[in-house]
Amino acid sequence: MDVLIERACGLDVHKKSITACIVTPEGKEIKTFRTHTVFLLDLIDWIKQHRCTHVALESTGVFWKPIVNLLEAEEIQFLVVNAQHIKAVPGRKTDVIDAEWICNLLRHGLLKPSYIPDRNQRELRELVRYRRSLIQERSREHNRVQKVLEGANIKLAAVVSDIMGVSSRDMMDAMIEGEEDPEKLAAFARRTLKKKKEELELALRGNMSAHQRIMLRTMLTHIDFLNEQLVELDMEVAKRLDPFQQDIERLDTIPGIARRTAEQILAEVGTDIGARFPSAAHLCSWVGLVPGQNESAGKRKSSKTRKGNKYLRSALIEVAHSVCRSDNYLALSTDASQPEKADTERPWRSPTPS
């Protein structure tokens, strides 16, 4: 095969060490570096000394990020490649052989780079992904609060729609302070919840012990802290996405997509979608929402979707679930595209042998 890149470098990246292989017209050289910043700078200087124009490395966990940050600063072209695409031929395997294999694939133009956005979008991604993690943690704390209340035989969730609402929060704060009278607790109800005062008195008649009060106080304090952190992250994300308000507003018009989901879509995909994805089908495939193809002898077999971008995938799945349960044109079109089959249309199956 023809050599397309004369001066190339392949990196086999690990947590504590990096094995690098450089191939140039003068020959081949292999070195091992540690992953501290001081040694990474030595690696960059070594690559520049050999005038390498391209560097390829596996997308192993988060270990590729420090290297990419330095290569980007030096304006050296890099390729972060899916590890499944560059598996060597089965046989002997060492870090040196892996680095040589990556370098050879790079020189012959056989590597397909992964989508690595620019630094600003990478920073936005980290903020949005961390915000999503905090939201998930807050949801877990809500579930823990519900378990504590059930353990105390308090059926507050059977009456109110949101146990973290203003009225419910006032009731739980009173419980933490030692209040046990159901009538006094039900008096914290506000607005339309006042109509359910009798039901509330029955639901609030329980037996909360001392250790449950401690747990409830700790959980509510943690929830308050998470809410404060989420406000800070919301402000930072909104500041970074301020130039793209028009894109966010357009996404917000789609049923099921609110502002936070729109921000996550822009953070994961970017604003210049047309340059990265030729069509909507390419974008869906990259996210991992398109099933694979497994057909043989005219028969279609079971096929799974690829992993794709798990953050954007989970967000879009949540959007799809909310759309299906609401009254809008997308939900109606989904129902119309899946008509119910009559019994005569179901495929016949032979009975199971006894």
Rank of each mutant, 00 (worst) to 15 (best):
M208Y: 09
L251I: 06
E263T: 01
I257S: 03
F225I: 06
E198D: 07
T218E: 12
N207C: 10
A203H: 04
N227I: 04
K196D: 03
R250D: 00
M215L: 15
A258L: 05
R213T: 14
K196E: 02
T261L: 09
D234M: 09
A238Y: 08
T192D: 04
E236S: 15
L241C: 13
A203Q: 08
R240V: 10
A258I: 05
T253W: 01
K239R: 15
A238S: 15
K239E: 15
A238E: 15
L200I: 02
A203G: 05
L204A: 05
R205F: 02
R250A: 03
E232F: 00
G256E: 02
K194D: 07
T218K: 03
K194P: 08
R259D: 05
T253C: 01
M215T: 13
H211M: 14
K197Q: 07
N207T: 08
A262C: 01
M235A: 15
M235V: 14
R213L: 11
Q229H: 12
L200N: 04
T253K: 06
D252T: 08
E236M: 14
E201H: 02
T261H: 02
L200H: 02
I214L: 14
K194R: 15
L220I: 00
E263A: 08
L220P: 00
F244L: 11
E199S: 02
E236R: 15
Q245R: 15
E199R: 01
T261D: 00
R213D: 06
L226H: 10
V237N: 12
P255S: 01
P255N: 02
R217C: 07
L216A: 05
L226F: 09
L230C: 10
R205A: 13
L266D: 03
L226Q: 12
N207I: 07
T221N: 05
I223P: 00
I223K: 03
I254G: 04
V237R: 09
G206M: 03
L204N: 01
F244A: 11
L241D: 09
L220C: 05
E199W: 00
P243N: 09
R205Y: 08
T192V: 13
K239G: 12
K196P: 01
Q246C: 02
M219A: 00
E201C: 11
R240I: 04
Q264H: 11
S209L: 14
L266V: 08
L193G: 07
L193A: 03
F225M: 09
N207A: 10
R259P: 07
L226R: 05
I214S: 07
L216G: 01
V237L: 12
L202C: 03
L220F: 03
D247E: 15
A203M: 03
L193K: 00
V237Q: 13
E228M: 13
D234G: 11
E263N: 14
S209D: 14
R240W: 04
M208S: 10
R260C: 07
D234C: 12
R250V: 10
L193S: 03
E198L: 01
K194L: 13
I254M: 04
T192H: 13
E198Y: 07
L266P: 08
E236C: 09
I248H: 00
F225N: 00
A203K: 01
F244K: 13
R217G: 06
E236N: 14
Q229A: 10
D224E: 15
A258D: 10
D224M: 05
